[in-house]
Amino acid sequence: MISQLLEILVALILAPLLMGWINAWRAWLQNKSAPSLLQPYRTLHKLFHKESVVAETAMPLFRIAPYLVFGCMALACGIVPTLSTDLPMAPAADAIALVGVFALARVFSALAAMDIGTSFGTMGARREMMIGFLAEPALLMVLFTASLITRSTSLASIVHTLASQKFVIYPSLLFSGAAFLLVLLAENARVPVDNPTTHLELTMIHEALILEYSGRHLALIEWAVALKLFAYTCIGAALFFPWGLAQANAPEALLLALPVLVVKLAAAGVVLAMIETVNAKMRIFRVPEFLATAFLLAVIALLVHVLLGA
């Protein structure tokens, strides 16, 4: 129980910091002076204190969506084993349900964007759904490969099995790792697919979705975006670098798992910033190709597992 509460709390606190860390590294790699690591917290603080303006034509759905999205992401962070594999919430939702939770959040943010009826919102929603429907099968395939290796679809027991056995090289996990990286970039609106800092009207995907939000609604969505990135990074860390998690509900093991998690996240942040720096944003019509590659890698991972048994 402690581990579950601590895990959600850590996710809520660390997620904006991860965002700030990545932004800082991006700035450093581009020879700019970096914003403070705490900048995302300040943005959230500012937005929470601002008045929230809602369009006249908005339906209640528009007001509910930020809370739903935030709730979905917080739930996802609770399911993914970040600190411990001994999670009371883990049996409630396996890896497939986790993908469903992400899909639920996506559907609601797309509906809310279309609700206002501006052309940008609709365009963003359509693009977001296109990326989503291409990325989801790839993500599922990645999770299936891990499930086949460990004979379980529950993330907690996958991680438990992977971490507690003797070190084995899985070529199939190499493929699914590559696929997962592509999915992560696409799902979190990172550079080759979407530029998270752009407000250039024709190229934006994610920003177009949340264009109409302001004040506390926007703050919740920004926080949810950070949580999503956090959740994805933690899924990656859990599947491909499963070491250092607490196996039992012991406080001292949790204390040890926290620094390990921070180190993993810091490394992942630097890698993400580097990928975003060396790549250029691609045209939207290249995105299906990008995600087809991810799907292909994930399918090959399955095949390699079947052939080599590893």
Binding site: V168, I169, P171, L297, L308
Partner: peptide, 22 residues
Amino acid sequence: LLSQSINLFAAMLLIVVFAMIS
């Protein structure tokens, strides 16, 4: 570990060929 690394190298060869195609 070494005998497993043969499988790893084989998998990498496959990735590289796919990368070449695309």
